[in-house]
Structure formats: structure tokens, C-alpha cells
Design a protein around this nucleic acid. Structure first.
Lengths: 215, 215, 215, 215
DNA sequence: TATGAATGAGACTTCATTCAT
DNA sequence: AATGAATGAAGTCTCATTCAT
């Protein structure tokens, strides 16, 4: 009733179709990775014929890249909660870490697919990998800024080291949860990560000749 | 007379052929992941026809599992240096971490391929994934034992948390290096990781009501 | 005011669009033949969407036929220079041959594409092939008329033979140049062709019992 | 009866299968040209599945090249009759021409397919085209040798010109017959071609200042 | 006068696997 | 212990064409 002319289906709505394809692709790519994501499977899941997918995306590579971008944006919306701008550095860093942990539980496709692509060493690297690395670089820069703000005494190298360690820990914990599932309390682990990072920041601020955290 | 045409040194050496296949497969699987590793590609790289691969391995799944096992053993040989059994806990944990870092630089296939398999969520999980998870579990147990030995005051849960964090950090740092290549000083990062773990261990040993490392 | 959005010079000019499509199609058909000329390729080259091509042409066959016709007309304009109407038969036939040679160098698409179509033995013959054969028939008739005019003594069969030989030689020389490119002096070869035709005409005129040119 | 175990068909005979594929491909390629020759069509005609074709030939290009080579050899067998080694030059050249005409009627695939490929101007030229041009070059060299033998007075350039004209005429007459079918007496036309070539040879031998055949 | 979107058919090619030798 | 040949299924992508706007 509400939709009068539904008799002749397919009212040719490009934007919606594109999104349907992307949604299907995220799901499958998240399950099976780059090689495992077949156009036929995406087609079956979204209902559009394979040839229609090629109207919206140049090729499979283009589709996967768009999937990465789309799931990154979904993830960004999940992380970018207002985020307390007050409290001690430890409090603030802990809140942020918990935030990120929760976003990774809600919208994990971006990172799972991205890591799969990143670990490959294909002769000709897929476009999606490039997109992931760029997006990841952006995220890393934001982490570096936060570190600089919260621990202004750190020199440039210390910031870089801490950023690397922060991101690597996040990746590793995420992988751990992907493997072991809900038995892992990701939020708690991220809070621990935050605490250790905080201690490390204070240790590094003490200067190169005494970099170990004080006993 | 006993061996007529021994001139052609193709006297059918099963063991050698099997190894040639495995070597080729490690390389390709490391480049392209599970789906990307085609029997034809392995055949082309090792010089044996595809049907010969099926003489040595039941199917592709079996081959990949053998690849995981083989590269794990290679990696094990790289880690299991004598390893100083003396020194302060911090010293010992740092030496171990550096050891592991070096082994991951030398023989990274095991972990790269394993993580790729681990991140997939295939409906029917490949045998190789199972092998990787088992092998990984073994490694994790060994880490837990070391933690228990070095920090005997920790309760069971603290050991578990620390082990998780240790392994996750290692995974994350490894991924970081896979992405950024030689620009990352993996040994230094693992030493930092060791130091933070050491601090965390001491903090956790202090008891639940005061888990934070002292200011 | 009278023509609101004339700023965008896309005021839907049917004639121009049609020509743009034809130009693109000539180029591609000349490169790739009938089967190789895809609507998508033409669309990409002319900038108009594929569906617009179907607005101007019934189907691919129709387009190719139009291409043949168009490039034939282009070629005709190139051949139909005033053409000396005086001189000895040998002079006149030589000038004509040189004229044709030059036209084939300038506008070769018609003949190249036509010959490609003509050589095919498709179950259902494309419209373009028919058009080419008709157009070719017209040209052959004109050759026959010229022969009759220049060598009035020839009987009907001799004219037919000479015409066939004239056209075949032209085709063959054209093919030769298509294969070997600018290293071939097409004009000189056509002049030789003219001379031999002239000799043959005189030989044939001598009567059936002495058809060979005199020693 | 004669073949006992015919129950389990497909006794895996590589050589025979390869030939069956080639036979089917010659037929189809002769009908439809390069683009029109689909692997599926060849598969249907020869009875082997498409994937089997790829066991014997790297790709479609490789198949077409083999087709050219095979049909060239068939044609060669048709031309290379003993060929009278005696008689006047005119007689000998006429016999040869008639021979070639007959071979082109019997085994026309080689030249038809070859010319189709030669006329194309594909960005990336098919392997088959290259093979055709090489083979054609060989044939042209043989013509040149014959010309040199029969008309020893000719200088190098005259031989080249005559060879070009001879081959071009043959191509053109062949095309004519492909278009007009059995209504054309190809042998008679080739004999005329031979006669004119003979006259031309004698004319060219007279020296540059008097190249026209004598009145 | 044009076009964005869709689509079924079919293109080439690779896949994992089998089987007789 | 190995392999040449075969094969059905599936892969990515392009095809000519249509249709509602």
C-alpha cells in the first residue's frame, strides 16, 4: 500500500544500490578476506547481479577499497564520542582507551579486513591495502597529538615510540579478541594498556639517561 | 646393472620432493594468504607437477597445515637459543624479549601466515588455522610459566592477564614491522615491551587494591 | 535570458553527437574489427554514455554499417579529384592509379574495415559487410566503365577480367602497405599496376587467339 | 569390439586431443576471425571441456598462433607439388601460379585468417599475427628466389618490386575469390597474373631508361 | 535529445582435484 | 614415487541491450 508502483521492481536508485553492495561486501570481506570475497558471493548477498556491481565499482579492487573506507567511517563514528576533556592524564588516557576498545567490539570489520590486507605481501598490492595504510596513518597521527598534549615533556622520539607502542598494543589486543572471542574483556585489557602507556610516558619524560620507570 | 638409468638423478626422492613443495608453499602462502595460495602456483615454483603435490599431501588444506607446522618449527629453532638463566627478572625478561624479536625478523612466515588465517572467519575453518591456534596456545603456556617463575607472587588471574598482554604486544609489534618494514627497530620495541611488562608485574603483585604502579 | 542555461554548451546537438560517435567508431573498428568494436569502447572514446549510442543507432550492426558508409564517403571525396580527362590511355590510367593510391593512404579505414568484414564467413552476415560489398560493386562498375572507354576494342569478358584484375591488384597492394607501412611506395606500385593493366588491355584487344602480349 | 575397455572413455591421449582442438579452432577461426573465435565454441566443436584446452595451450592467443602455424603447414603441403623444373620462363611461372591458385582453393584458412589478423591494428598485437607475418616473409623470400632464377638480368630493386607485386596480386585475387566465391576462375586469374609478371620482368630487365614493355 | 542504472549471457581463465599409467 | 591429461565448478569481468526518466 505504502509503495504504489512496486509492480515493476528496480526503480533504478544508484545510491541505494551502491550501499547495498557495500553492506554485503563488508560482511563477506570481513569473513573471508580479500581473495575469499567473490563477486558472485557479494551479488548473491545483495541481490543485484554481478554485472551491476561493475556499474558501481570499477573492479573488485575498487570495491574492497570502498569497503575499507566505508567500514573505517563506521568505526570512526563509533570512536568519536565526545570524550571527556578533563581529569588527570591517567584518567583521560584510560577513558580514551576504553572508548576505542568498545568501538572495536562494535565495528571490527575495518580493522580485521585491514590487518588481513596489511599482512599480505602480494606482488601487486591491492588498492584497499593502500587505503587502509593511509587511514591508519591518520589515526596514528591523532594518537601522537594526544600523547604530545597529555605529556608535553616528551621529546619527539619518545612520542614516536609511545605512539608505535600504543597502536601496536591495540592491534595485538584486537587480534587476541578476534581469536578468543567474548572470553576476553577487551575494555579491561585496553585500560591496562592505557595505564602502562601512562607509566611509560612518565618514565620516558625523565630523560634518556634514566629511561626506566623509577623503582 | 642393478640400477639401470641412475644417470638421471631423478631417482624419485620422496623426502626431498616433499620439502621442495613445502618451501615453495611457505613462500607463496606468506605472500598471498590461504585463498591466494593455489596449487598451480606452488607447482610452478617448486617445479613438480600439481598431481605430485597431491601425492604428498591429501589436499590443499593439508598442505597449508604442514606449511604452518614447518614454519613454526623453523621459528622455534630461531627462538630457542640457550637463553640466559641468570640475572635480575628485568634483565632476564629483556633478554628473552630481544630473542623473540630477532626470531620474528628471521623467520616471520609462521606468524604472518598464522595471523592471516586467524583473522579470517570462514564458515568451515581451515585445518591450518587450527594448527596455528594450537601452536600458539603452546607458546602462550610457555610465556605463562616464565611469568610464574619470575614473579612468583602473582595470582593466577594476574598471570593470565600478563600473558595475554605479553603475547598481544608481541603480535602488535610484529604487525607494525610487517607494515613499516626495516624502519622499525623491533628489538628496541620488544625491550620496551619487556620493561613495561616487568613494571606491570610488580604493580599487579602489589595486590588488587593498589594495582597501579606507584607514582 | 531567451536561452537560460546556454552557459553549458551541452545544448543537446543531435547531429554533432552522432558524428562524434561515428568518429570514435571508425577509429576503433579500424583497430579491432567488427567483433573487437565494443559499444563500451566507442562510448569511452567519444565521451557519450553507451545508452546514447543506442539513441542514434539501432544496434551495433547499424553503427558499423554507418561507419562503413561514412568512411567510404570520406574516401570518395579523397579519390574524386578532377582527374585529367586528356592524354594517352596509358597516361590517363596512370594518373588515375596514382590518385587512388594517394586516397588509400589518406583514408584507409574504409577499405581496411571492409576487407576485414569481407574475409569473415559468419553464419549471419553483418549489415556492414553487405554495405561494403555494395559500395565495392559500385566502384568496380566505375572501373569497368573507364576500361570500356579507354579500350573500346575489348569485348565484355575481357573488360570483366581486366576489372577484376585491377581491383584485386589494388586490394593486394593496399594490404601490402597495411602490413609493411611507410616502407612501401604505394603510388609507385600503383603506377606499375597501371602500366601492366594497360599492356594487358592491349594484349587482350588483339583477340583471343593471340592473347599474350607480343614478344 | 576392436577397442575392449572403451567403457571408461578418455584414455588420455595428449597428441590426439591437441589435434582435435586445433582442427576445431581452424574451422571456427576461419569463419569468425580472432575475436569471434571463442574458447567455448572451440570446446563445443571438439568435445573437450574448455579447461582442457588450457592444458594444451597457454591461452587463446597461443591457440590462434598454433592454428596459423598448422594451417600454414597444411597449405605448404598443398603448394609444394614437384613443380616442373623445365620449360620456358613463361611456362614455368604460369605452372607455378596455377599451383598456388589451386592450393589457395583447397586450403584457404591460412591466408584468410592471416589476412584478417594482418589487417587489424590492435594496440597489443596477437601472437598469431606475428607468426603469420614471419611465415609470409618466408614465402616472399621464396618468390624472390624464383624471380632471380628465372630472370637473372634483373637488379635487386627490380626483384623486390616484382616480388611485392606478385604477392600483392595473389592476395588480392584470393580476396576476390573469398568475396565472390566459385564464380571466379582463380586458376585463370593467376595465369593472367603470371603472364603480366613475366612481361613486367622482361620490361624491367631492359634497363631503367626504357622500363615500359615495348610496344 | 539524452542518460543512469540495470541485466542475462557469455567472454577468458584458473581452481582444486582425480585417475590411469 | 610420480605425472600427463582431464574436468566441472567457479573466478573476474565485458558484452550488447533495455528501460524509466
Amino acid at each position: 500500500m505504502t509503495r504504489p508502483q512496486t509492480a515493476r521492481r528496480k526503480r533504478a536508485n544508484g545510491v541505494e544500490s551502491r550501499q547495498r553492495i557495500l553492506d554485503a561486501a563488508v560482511e563477506i570481506a570481513g569473513e573471508r578476506g580479500y581473495e575469499g570475497t567473490s563477486i558472485a558471493a557479494v551479488s548473491a548477498k545483495c541481490g543485484l547481479p554481478a554485472s551491476s556491481i561493475y556499474w558501481h565499482f570499477k573492479d573488485k579492487d575498487d570495491l574492497i577499497a570502498a569497503v575499507i573506507e566505508g567500514s573505517f567511517e563506521t568505526w570512526l563514528r563509533a570512536v568519536e564520542l565526545p570524550g571527556e576533556e578533563s581529569g588527570t592524564p591517567l584518567e583521560r588516557v584510560t577513558v580514551m582507551a576504553a572508548n576505542i576498545a568498545r568501538s572495536l567490539i562494535e565495528a571490527p570489520d575495518f580493522l580485521r579486513l585491514g590487518l588481513m590486507l596489511a599482512l599480505e605481501r602480494r606482488p601487486v598490492e591491492p588498492h584497499g591495502r593502500t587505503v587502509f595504510l593511509q587511514v591508519r596513518e591518520t589515526a596514528a597521527r591523532r594518537v601522537a597529538e594526544t600523547v604530545t598534549t597529555l605529556y608535553p615533556d616528551l621529546d619527539e622520539e619518545a612520542v614516536r615510540t609511545l605512539t608505535t607502542y600504543a597502536v601496536a598494543g591495540a592491534d595485538g589486543l584486537f587480534v587476541h579478541r578476534e581469536i578468543h572471542g567474548d572470553t576476553v574483556d577487551l575494555v579491561a585489557m585496553f585500560e591496562l594498556h592505557a595505564r602502562l602507556l601512562h607509566d611509560a610516558a612518565r618514565g620516558l619524560a625523565a630523560g634518556p639517561e634514566d629511561r626506566a620507570v623509577p623503582a
